[in-house]
Every structure is written in structure tokens, then in C-alpha cells.
Design a protein around this nucleic acid. Sequence first.
DNA 1: CCGGATCCGACGGGATACTG
DNA 2: CAGTATCCCGTCGGATCCGG
Lengths: 130, 130
Amino acid sequence: MDARAPQETIRLEMPRELDFDNCPVRDVMSQIGGKWSTLILSALSERPYRFSALRRLIADISQRMLTQTLRDLERDGFIARTVYPTKPPSVEYALTPLGRSLLLPLRELIVWAECNHETVRAARRRYDAG
Amino acid sequence: MDARAPQETIRLEMPRELDFDNCPVRDVMSQIGGKWSTLILSALSERPYRFSALRRLIADISQRMLTQTLRDLERDGFIARTVYPTKPPSVEYALTPLGRSLLLPLRELIVWAECNHETVRAARRRYDAG
DNA sequence: CCGGATCCGACGGGATACTG
DNA sequence: CAGTATCCCGTCGGATCCGG
């Protein structure tokens, strides 16, 4: 997980399907890589939240993007949307089992990012200087 | 790794730094989430490659995007660029230790994507139908 | 409270042509 | 061979207003 850890030799296989829609990696990445997806998944990993609660939690997300990202995540089966017909109606979002299973590999990446963020930023500064 | 695997309860902590540049997750994701980054990292995980070799390997990448993505990955310290002053000059790209360390969490995500791709596509079809 | 509809700027990414 | 320079367009995401 750390760049200074003993180096295991890792080989990733090139996907043979380079077509975007048929390439699993690209298909998942294009969703996870969105600006707000991981943030929302992180929030929902704690517990289900209602729309307005998510909005308060993330704070700098626009109404539009929250709605859209939730829709996309729901479409892919990562989260479930439940409407309670109260007045006014309340809507709750929760992770599905599929969504929860995604958290495992996602967490690995998040931990890596936190561990190596400063290294990356340093490399970036060096590159921009030279 | 599979959605049907026994469910461990995972909680991801919300990053307190919501500012884009200071949030490690977003900072890494915005790079990895690019259209070509993971493909290039996968290729270089096998062995170093020269520019034209990468181009043949990826095939449907444009010259422009290959150059730009390689630059970005180099800037972040994931790959190293070595110029051999032959005639005509040849340039070789290779993973750095930092880049190689990224492959571990990345592979988790790739494996997950391959395992669950069909589930996601099915969910997507259901959503679009209903 | 939970959105949808619309307009708009910024950026990612493709195609093509040109250079050392 | 390994790029740079332009042009162009589609999508992402923000702001704002409107509706059940």
C-alpha cells in the first residue's frame, strides 16, 4: 500500500475488449471517476441518508449534481432509492449489496490515495518546477 | 470481491477536506478516472514500452491523448520517461516504484469490475426498461 | 422536501496537419 | 520516431428558476 513497501511484481492484463462499452474496467471507472460518486458512496457506507441530509453532508455539491449522481448510481445498482409517502415526501438512499461490495476495492484505493497524496503532490511540484 | 460474498460491514470515512485540491481521493481519482490512464498503467505493468509500441498496443488512442496522458502520469510520478539519443530518438516509458505501488489497489478494482460487470449491465438494463 | 428544466462555461478528448 | 499545434465537439458540472 506504501510506495516504500517491498515490491511485489504486479502485472495487469490488458483488456482484450478495447471497446468502451464492453470493457469492464472503463465501464466502472467512468462511473466511479465522476466528481461526486466516491463521496456519496462514502457517505452512504456509514448509513442510509435522505436527500437533504446528503446535501448538508457534502455541502458544496449542487442540487443538480446530487440528483444526477444518485440516479446514475441507482441505475448501476449501487444504491437503492426508497420513497416514503409522507407529507412532504421523504426519500432515502442506501447502498445495495452490490454497492457495499464495491466498497472493499474502493477503500484500498482511498487508503492508497491518503498514504501517497503528499508524494504525488511533491512529484507534481518537482515536475512543474523543472 | 463478489456481491454474493459474505457481507462485511464497511464504513468509509468522509474526507474532511472537501476542497478538491486537498482531497486525496478526488486528486487521485481525477487522474485514474481518465479515459486512458488505467489502460496505459496496465500496459506498463507488463514491461516498459516505447511511445510507438504503446500506440500499437492501445490502438484506438489518439496520438494527442497518448502524449497528454503520459505527461500527466509522469507529472504525478507514476511513470518515468527516458530518452535515448539515438537517430531517430527513442523514448521509453516505465513505471516508477510509486506507480507500481498503485497497481495493487488498482488491481482490486479491476478484478471487481470484471467480476461484477454483467451484474451492473443487468441492473442498467432493468433501470432503463422500467 | 425532492427534485425537473434550462442555460451556460470549462474541460476532455478526437481528427488532422506540421516539426526536429 | 516522438511529439506540437489547431480546430472542433460532446459531456461534465455550476447557477438559476420552476413544480408536485
